[in-house]
Computed example of a mutant assay.
Amino acid sequence: MTSPVDLLTDLVAIASPSYAEHEVAACLAGHMRRLGFAAHLDAAGNAVGVLDRGPGPSVLLLGHIDTVPGGPPLRVTADAVHGRGAVDAKGPMAALTCGAARATGFRGRLTVVGAVEEETPGSRGAMAVRDTLPRPDAVIVGEPSGWSDVVLGYKGKLDLRVSADCPGAHPSAPYPRAVELAVRAWAVLLDEIGADPADPASAHRSFADPAATLTLLRGDPEHAEAEMSVRTPPGFDVDACVAAVRTRVPAATVTVRGAVPACRVRRADPVVRALSGAIRAEGGEPGAKVKTATSDMNTLSEVWSVPMATYGPGDSRLDHTDDEHIRIDDFLRGVAVVERALTSLAL
């Protein structure tokens, strides 16, 4: 029989950078079957497990099984599981899976999905889920919130690529070069979102303000390209921002690589209430937070207006770091919280 820690360590042991998730998806599906799910891999490569427990609401629990590249390998100590993905987001994924399997008091249909490519601009796994599965009655997204906290919302994201081509010319020719156009586009973007050009990263501390990151800049006088990522607050006008950059830097080509709006739910949301009550029952003081990053909650909420929140054990400050690890006691509390929340969820 699969134990929660067995599932977690088996997932973390398998390297699964984005676009290379097949082995870990097959592993998760195998564990799902041993836990009683009807499980398969869908056309996108997601691991999908279903528990049909009679008439009642349908709840989707979706985490992601891809990671950023590299990072520490699996190492298990007396009190923690170390390794890439232990926090982001194989810990939450294992907690959703095991919590759903243990929620035998839930009446309805539980669908658990280990989604691919969350760490990419396209979020292809979650996109496939929302495009192919029936709309559920409620959703829990698995991301590290800390075992006693619930995430109510995330900033959105706008990913841009800027490219410029200019004819060869003497350095004294009176027009901008390609690499200068790419730099100009970055400066214009910062101006349009109201960021401090001397410290653009400072806006990442605020949920209410847009914040931009220059993720790529390369080129020379004849050809250059840049990639920029904007974290957007609720109500941000993506179309106006893109149009302004194109208008102010007409000699460059500005392409939208991906865009998803911000999302936020209220504390009174039924999923938030169920998770908070379960945290309290496990001896915790439930907290609520919003994140300045983006998750598959953004992708799903863009189409499905249903009760929804994000939950998962793990300290998100350890995401993508060389010290990524999850405490085993926090992980097991997370499993118990998911079990209790599902059992008590009233829709």
Rank of each mutant, 00 (worst) to 15 (best):
V254F: 01
T232V: 10
L190V: 13
P234Q: 03
A243R: 09
P197A: 01
A211M: 10
A211L: 11
A226K: 06
M228N: 10
T232W: 03
A203W: 10
R231F: 01
D191Y: 04
S202A: 13
T247Y: 01
R218K: 08
H223I: 04
E222W: 05
A203H: 10
D199I: 06
S202I: 12
R257W: 00
T255C: 01
P250M: 11
D196V: 05
L181C: 04
R177E: 05
H204F: 15
V238N: 02
E225S: 10
R218N: 11
D239I: 10
A198P: 00
T232Q: 03
A224R: 00
D199A: 15
A178H: 03
R218P: 02
P234T: 00
A244I: 09
G235M: 04
T255G: 05
S206Q: 11
R177I: 00
F236W: 01
V183D: 07
S229L: 06
R218A: 14
V238D: 06
T213Y: 10
A201P: 13
A198K: 14
D239S: 13
D237N: 02
A208Y: 02
D239R: 10
D237W: 06
V179E: 13
V256T: 11
A252K: 00
D199L: 12
E227R: 14
G235D: 06
A182N: 14
V245W: 09
A201T: 12
D196S: 00
V230E: 01
V245I: 15
E192S: 02
L190S: 09
S202M: 00
D220R: 05
A243F: 04
P197K: 05
I193S: 00
S229A: 09
H223V: 13
H223A: 09
L217D: 11
L190P: 09
R184I: 03
A240K: 11
H223W: 09
A182F: 09
W186I: 00
D196A: 07
G219A: 13
G194E: 03
P197F: 00
V179P: 03
P200V: 11
A224N: 08
A244V: 08
A178E: 08
T253R: 15
R218L: 12
L216G: 05
A185G: 09
A240D: 02
P221D: 06
V242G: 06
T255L: 14
V242H: 13
V238M: 03
V242D: 07
A252T: 12
D239F: 01
A201E: 10
A195T: 02
G235P: 13
P233I: 01
A240V: 01
S202K: 00
T213K: 07
A201N: 04
P233T: 12
T232P: 09
E225P: 00
P233C: 07
A185D: 09
A212T: 00
P197Q: 10
V256W: 07
